[in-house]
């Protein structure tokens, strides 16, 4: 080991200040702040929806039917004459919850799994990654149908089902990152001076692998929101009159020519969320990138 490497280890910032520095850097990134603001706004709306929604989410007006945006209904109404703004607000509660919770589950399992496999290597790695291969290959639909039959219909289960599928790719990415990092001098140095594996993984590997993981996470959240619509199709998801952005979009897609507003507004909500997530994710990635910070 050369002196430079020892210096790098010695200078590796302690956990708390890593995050504090990151926050400082994040505050300078206007786009990331914009993303954070939009997301916070959406979450706030979602929390307050039951009190501020303009209409009841189940209130129908069959004689009105689908109507374009108007003074009474800012975003128009659906085929049942239900207020679309209200639907989007209530749908956001479900979608945001599914998006964040399911992704967190996926993140937790995937990152841990991938980090262990990549770090330990050898037979353990092979066994763990072949497990991932098996899970990739199982027919997802049958799996979901069975879940529903065994456990009945509930939202917690929905989160778990989605998390159980989404972690696989996360694990693969994490593993390949860790594998790459493990070969780098500062990690080899850390190993050779006898730091415990858990410390190395926590302090050196995970923070350094965060970039791609954050990027993939920000991409996973919206696709999870759409996956929820498919699970609802199989009967596992939310039941009418409850709704979600994914469901609103898939219904809207069927009538995009006749009632375009039913697609555009829920689509806009999802797109805005996705962009905000990505700005924030990029900002976080840059903020946490210790080496890049000096540039």
């Amino acid at each position: 080991m050369n002196d430079q490497a020892i210096n790098m280890i010695a200078q590796a910032p302690p956990g708390s200040s890593l995050w504090r520095d990151a926050w400082h850097r994040l505050k300078r990134n206007r786009l990331a702040l914009f993303g954070l603001a939009v997301l916070s706004f959406f979450i706030l709306i979602a929390l307050l929806t039951p009190w501020i929604a303009p209409y009841g989410y189940a209130d129908q007006n069959l004689d009105l039917g689908a109507s374009p945006p108007s003074a009474e209904h800012w975003l128009g109404t659906d085929v049942f004459g239900r207020d679309l703004l209200t639907q989007i607000m209530y749908g956001g509660r479900i979608s945001l919850a599914v998006g964040f919770v399911a992704t967190s589950v996926a993140l937790l399992i995937g990152v841990t799994w991938g980090a262990i496999a990549g770090y330990v290597g050898g037979r353990v790695d092979a066994a763990m990654m072949r497990m991932v291969d098996i899970l990739y290959a199982l027919p997802f639909m049958i799996f979901i149908v069975l879940l529903m039959v065994v456990f009945g219909r509930n939202l917690i289960l929905l989160f778990l089902a989605i998390g159980a599928v989404e972690w696989l790719t996360m694990a693969r990415i994490m593993r390949s990152q860790v594998q790459t990092l493990r070969q780098q001098e500062f990690v080899e140095a850390a190993i050779s001076i006898g730091l415990p594996a858990s410390t190395i993984v926590r302090r050196h590997l995970i923070p350094n692998a965060l970039g791609p993981i954050i990027v993939y996470t920000t991409l996973t959240i919206p696709s999870v929101m759409l996956l929820e619509a498919f699970l609802s199709f199989l009967g596992l998801g939310v039941q009418p009159p409850q709704t979600s952005w994914g469901l609103l979009i898939s219904y809207g897609a069927e009538t995009m020519e006749e009632y375009p507003w039913l697609l555009i507004f829920p689509g806009l909500a999802l797109t805005l969320t996705l962009f905000s997530l990505n700005f924030l994710g990029d900002g976080l990635r840059d903020a946490l990138d210790v080496r890049g910070a000096g540039d």
Binding site: R130, L138, P139, I142, F143
Partner: peptide, 18 residues
């Protein structure tokens, strides 16, 4: 073994599905 495991699990999974 991966493929055998996949086949086995799937075989029984589909039979249990209603």
């Amino acid at each position: 073994p991966v493929i055998i495991a996949v086949v086995t699990v799937t075989f029984f999974l589909v039979r249990v599905a209603p």
